[in-house]
């Protein structure tokens, strides 16, 4: 059986339909759950919140060739929220970079699939991440480098809204705007929950690591787009807009739900990272499999 989304030649896939992308996202979620269950450790909330966007990126937007992970003209992708590594690995496996079976080695000693993305270990990983707030800067370097080389590839960076608290991100936003990096796209997974969150400061509540992300990114000179990060139609439309350059770097603020797809994980910071026992895995997979693919917009998402 060839992995979903790949054409018979196994190279650049026929562009899948929206419905196929939804199926791929569901498959990513399944693999995240089964891999974390098998490893006995790992992050769940972040990978589940990013799954739909990873599906759209790797099966629709990124120009790449799994047979040549180092192809210089490939679109580059950096998972700045590196703790969501298993989401990326599941996607890379479905896309043909590593065997799907290899996901069972996630976090095992000697594995190519390290706890956080390691560009020296995994084919298809363009930058090592895991210390939050660091991924956008190498993305800026890749985007500057593409311009210096006259290369046409784009660089995509996925960030968590929690890691937007790191000062380095704002350094990178500033420099990216100054260099007019219209070949750089930051996707912000705005699930409003980091790991432990803030104490309840009343008005601000426990969540929302950084207030007014859209306004702040715009003030730093970025074009800002927003979408529901679980609505595949909206993701494809918005990412498509992001690839039409207007002289500025683009931030896509994707409104998401942490733990999306598994009711008892959704919006629950306790499921940020937690081993998954047999019973919880069974319940979670039942829920994923029951989904029709038509995902509801997250509660409170501004459209």
């Amino acid at each position: 059986m060839r992995p979903a989304g790949r054409d018979a030649e196994g190279r650049v896939p026929a562009t899948p339909s929206i419905e196929e992308l939804r199926t791929i996202a569901r498959e990513i979620r399944r693999l995240v759950l089964t891999s974390v269950h098998h490893a006995g450790a790992g992050h769940l909330g972040g990978p589940l919140s990013a799954a739909d966007m990873l599906a759209a990126l790797y099966f629709h937007f990124l120009r790449l060739d799994p047979a040549r992970p180092d192809w210089p003209d490939r679109d580059h992708f950096i998972l700045s929220k590196g703790h969501s590594a298993i989401g990326l690995y599941a996607t890379l496996a479905l896309r043909g970079y590593v065997p799907v079976d290899e996901l069972r080695t996630f976090d095992a000693i000697g594995s190519r699939l390290q706890g956080h993305p390691d560009m020296t270990a995994t084919p298809g990983v363009d930058m090592s991440t895991g210390s939050l707030g660091q991924g956008l800067s190498p993305g800026v370097g890749m985007a500057i480098g593409a311009k210096l080389k006259g290369a046409s590839f784009r660089t995509w960076v996925m960030l968590g809204d929690g890691e937007m608290q790191e000062g380095q991100v704002w350094e990178a936003l500033e420099v990216a705007a100054r260099y007019r990096l219209d070949n750089l796209i930051a996707v912000i997974d705005h699930n409003r929950l980091p790991q432990y969150t803030w104490p309840d400061f009343g008005q601000r509540g426990r969540e929302f690591p950084v207030q007014n992300l859209a306004g702040k990114c715009a003030a730093f000179g970025w074009r800002v787009l927003a979408c529901d990060g679980h609505d595949m139609d909206a993701i494809v439309r918005t990412f498509d807009g992001a690839t039409r350059p207007d002289g500025r770097p683009t931030a896509v603020i994707a409104h998401t739900v942490k733990g999306k797809g598994v009711s008892f994980m959704e919006g629950a910071f306790a499921w940020h990272a937690k081993p998954l026992d047999d019973e919880a895995l069974t319940r979670a997979l039942e829920e994923i499999d029951a989904q029709t693919g038509l995902s509801a917009p997250p509660a409170g998402a501004s459209r």
């Binding site: 210089p72 580059h76 800067s137 800026v140 370097g141 890749m142 480098g145 660089t155 350094e171 420099v175």
Partner: peptide, 20 residues
């Protein structure tokens, strides 16, 4: 790169992956 050393280190890393 301005007075922003953390970003500077990261930008350098990104450039290095392209062969610079």
């Amino acid at each position: 790169m301005g007075i922003a050393e953390q970003n500077m280190a990261g930008v350098a890393a990104g450039l290095a992956t392209l062969g610079f």
